[in-house]
Every structure is written in C-alpha cells, then in structure tokens.
Amino acid sequence: MSMAQRLLVLACSRSAGEALAALEATGQTLPPDVTWVNLPCGGSVDVLHILRALEAGAEKVWVLACYEGACESLEGNRWAEKRVQWVQALLQEIGLGPERVVFRAISPTMAADLKAWLEEE
C-alpha cells in the first residue's frame, strides 16, 4: 500500500471509522487522494505515525478521534489531541506549517459532517 499524497486520515475506528462506514453505506467513497488508516483507538495514534506520513509526502494529516468523554479507553482521544498539539509545535519549530496536522473530534453518527469536512479540505 502506498500513500495518496493529499490527505492522510489517522482514524479511531470506533468513531471516525464508523462514520466512514456509515458514509460508505450510502454509496459514497473517499476521494482517491485521501488515505484512510483505521486505528483501534485515538490513543494508538503515535507522533511517529504523523511524522512518517509527512515524510512520506502527505500534505496534510488529520487525526480523528472520539469526543471527550466518549472514548472507550477513557482518554485515548485526549492523548491523540495532545500528540497532535505536540507535532504542531514541532512543525512550527522546524518552520513547517502546524496547520498540516489537524485534530478533530467526531462520533459514529457524524457521517454527514465527515463528508462536509472532506469536501471543505
């Protein structure tokens, strides 16, 4: 598997993954230049995942995880957000735009919102 260049989505499978599944159930597909990686929980999003993706040429990385208070592992989503903030600070330090990494909270019922975000991007 190689990576599409425009956008990499590191997704908590319980929230974002389900929202994508719901979106796909309505016959819609991801744009071809978006790569989607389902992870078991936002907490398993590693700063290295994000950096490796940027190294591999991704223009943008989204980390999607549950809303605060909805993570099955209690704080996986908060770790995910912290790691995104950490990478953003690092990118700033090395002169790259911190906006290349984005954290967003999502829930399984937000297929329509996911679609809108993808269209916006």
Binding site: P40, S44, D46, V47, G76
Partner: peptide, 29 residues
C-alpha cells in the same frame, strides 16, 4: 487489554506493538 494502543504509542523504546493491528508499512514506527 482493551487493545487501545495507548501504551504502544507511549513506549520510549518502541517495545510494545498492537498485535492484530495492521498498520501500513510506511507508518510502521
């Protein structure tokens, strides 16, 4: 274990992996 991977993402020597979780090779830490 609930398989959340919080420990794996924290481990300072990358000694923990989520078994049964496929990650694309270009992401493999």
């Amino acid at each position: 274990c609930w398989g959340c991977g919080i420990c794996a993402a924290h481990c300072p020597v990358q000694a923990i992996a989520l078994k049964g979780q496929a990650v694309p090779s270009w992401l493999a830490p």
